[in-house]
Design a protein around this nucleic acid. Sequence first.
DNA 1: CCTGGTACCTACTCGCGAGTAAGACTACTC
DNA 2: GAGTAGTCTTACTCGCGAGTAGGTACCAGG
Lengths: 211, 211
Amino acid sequence: MRTEGRAKRLPRAVRERQIMDAAVDVFSRLGFHSASMDEISEVAGISKPMLYAYLGSKEELFATCIRREATRMMEAIATGVEPDQEPDVQLWSGLRAFFGFVGENRASWQVLHRQASTQGGPFAIELTDMRGRAVSLVAALLTQSTKAPATKLEAESLAAALVGAGESLADWWLDHPEEPAGVVAARLMNLVWMGFGDLVDGNVWHPPSRR
Amino acid sequence: MRTEGRAKRLPRAVRERQIMDAAVDVFSRLGFHSASMDEISEVAGISKPMLYAYLGSKEELFATCIRREATRMMEAIATGVEPDQEPDVQLWSGLRAFFGFVGENRASWQVLHRQASTQGGPFAIELTDMRGRAVSLVAALLTQSTKAPATKLEAESLAAALVGAGESLADWWLDHPEEPAGVVAARLMNLVWMGFGDLVDGNVWHPPSRR
DNA sequence: CCTGGTACCTACTCGCGAGTAAGACTACTC
DNA sequence: GAGTAGTCTTACTCGCGAGTAGGTACCAGG
């Protein structure tokens, strides 16, 4: 990329999008530290000073990537979930939306989950924030639907476990891409809704009849 | 650390242990990239060339840390689990051992989970390997105990999800250290064994009467 | 007291990558 | 076509940190 001399003249907004796309790509492959601004500019098809002129420092660029991808993902999930249904159906639609997003945006997922969580910089804030929103969402779902009065800590920790299971399963899925999203989502749904106890006995959960 | 001039003369084996301890400490706080050999040598109370003389390059050092901590952890779990019991009890004892280890070795856990999983170097191998062993263990437990003939992929993905839930819950626990290990472990046990479906109805799992 | 061996040190080299200075090309306006 | 605003470049500086060269202190055994 960028063997030719000069890049075509483009309006700022368009260039910024290109740069962001390149940045997400490179960050997802190399991680924050190993990714170099030189490589990002190369992939984006422009020279380094442009990068700095438009997106600021490396940390700012990374934080911006996180924010953008996190927003896209939360929107995808918010769009997919069906808030007026029974708790299990709500959870199911949320899981479907989540795995759907990950399946179509592997690079985004890598940046969000693998890379961002380990750096102690300003981005950790973005990430922790998004993860926190996801956890709260699940915790709320749990609290509102349970009869037994669970403590706040209890709901939150269960939600954290569930979110973690989802993340981990998404990672596993990256290594087994042949499985369709729905199947993977259904498996997690069964695990967290039915539990191993039921699964061992052959009881499974399935979605209510369509339409 | 190491404001005095020369370090006391010690046999190699002892020094190596000190260095490893320091390395785990620093890596867990800063992560692989941000940790500098200078700082590790400082914390260990010796000078940099010693580090290189004894443990080789930075990557080798890190890989050695991972290997040591991973082994310690797998041993702790292997010791804690009760292989001749019912599946649920096996799982329960495994979870207890796991959270017990994490509680008493926070730094080790940080290195293992947070740091190692993101670096693409030779250590990823060590880590993936250990994680793989954990997943296989759970998958085997699942397969052998279930009546419905589950596919290999199915068991493996469920195991991955469970391991991920454990990891995530352990991370959450780092931010809420006031909770005792047993409580956290029991919560995860309930989630994965009973499932939300039962929990919502107020059905909980509890260990068989003691002794 | 010499001879070697092992622990340990100070003080470097050297490459890589973040960030910048200074200017060149393009396109629009009057 | 001269001015000017925004796009885009080449070609640097400069610090940080991995890794090393070339010693010095300390403890054997002879």
